[in-house]
Design a protein around this nucleic acid. Sequence first.
RNA 1: GUGAGCGUAGCUCAGCUGGUGGUAGCACCGGGUUGUGGCCUCGGAGGUCGUGGGUUCAAGUCCCAUCGCUCACCCCA
Length: 421
Amino acid sequence: MKIKAVNGFKDILPDDALRRQHIEQTARDIFARFGMQEIRTPILEKTELFARSIGEATDIVEKEMYTFVDKGITMRPEATASILRAFIEHGLHVRQPVHRLYTIGPMFRHERPQKGRLRQFHQMDVEVIGANEPQVDAELMAMGQMLLDTLGVTVSLEINSLGCPACRPGFRDKLMAYLNQHKESLCPDCRRRMNVNPLRTLDCKNRNCKDLVQDAPSILDSLCNDCRDHFVSVKQTLDLLGVAYRVNRFMVRGLDYYTRTTFEFITDALGAQAAVGAGGRYDGLLRQLNGPDLPGIGFALGMERLVLLMEQQEDATPPKPTTDLFVAVLGEKAAEHASILVHRLRKLGLTAAMDYSGRSLKAQMKQAGRLNSRFTLIIGEDELACNEGVLRDMNTQEQSKFSLSLPMDEQAQHMTALLSA
RNA sequence: GUGAGCGUAGCUCAGCUGGUGGUAGCACCGGGUUGUGGCCUCGGAGGUCGUGGGUUCAAGUCCCAUCGCUCACCCCA
């Protein structure tokens, strides 16, 4: 019986890793333009951290966490809680009023895997702590959009406001009243949701519920003055920045800590997993974690979902890595010469490779082609005899002489000059 | 936790109503080119048909079980 990877956990093979490197590099570059600094936190945290931040009654905490029950620690199901914990633990707020942080790494949730959803998945997560201005909300969305545009994926941005502790309870009551009137027509799931988290009935996929909820009271009509002003400013700033969006009053979030602005980058190209990225404001969460009373906002992008989208949009295939020089050798003396030269070239910063197995020249040429090498240096008996290697341009097929009689350092210098010309 | 579908070569897959596992494609190795890749051509290697039972003269094919995977529900990035 072969040992295979654990269900929901995936190997990232070289081609896939290459694409992810490109995504991460692009992200880091764009995040930096927005003043984001990287932070890295441990993958394991006290279970209590997630219970208190994400919410005891959420599916994530209730049944999806990988928890070492005997140790009271859990593999992080998301990044925000860990970042806030680190922020509070190290008292970062005393250094400067606003922190802009990001992290990239694996998260773990014990869900049934399906397309675009794994048990170990990877997120790029951004958090701005200490700023409550609506311009920051818009700026974050603009940044996310910029990244997705740069990566060549097409998504649409949907935004909503969930209000705050001052106005959400009022809305919740109004919604409950409406739902109770139509209880009979709701799907079983929604009847259950009414007790757990009535807002979730708003984004039920059941056709009946969808129709029913169209006439439900809108949260946007229930916002308090501060929340309404905030939401208006967010929209105005998005307009100013030229970021397209659609207000979706039915969009809600699964995590308890969200307040005011929430948003999702969605696509219809990923089957059931519509959200490529999502986030929102979480004013009050830091205080709830016994930290300073600072506002925060953040969002996460799902790496696997991004990869799937980019694979569908073939144009974004990353170019194969190239090798500057492959040295094909015949005989031990040639191999010895080549191994020294290859090492010198690598020291000088070139990508160089050779074959050690003594295979036929044809096989070595084939290998050079596989490695996408720009040039191949051939050293055989004849070349050793006259101290002149054959340097072949793999694209033009032109071949020229390369002197093997100079001191190795000079040969390496010479080769570097030839290849960079 | 619930439902459906699928497990044949490293990968993608043929295999009709049971009758000897495919000249299949990609990839790999070798020859055609006494020492020159990509294209072409010829050849080669590679499989306990997921596993275990059952029906049958005969099972990749039918039945049962089991394991694995996938998709969907739930929920979420």
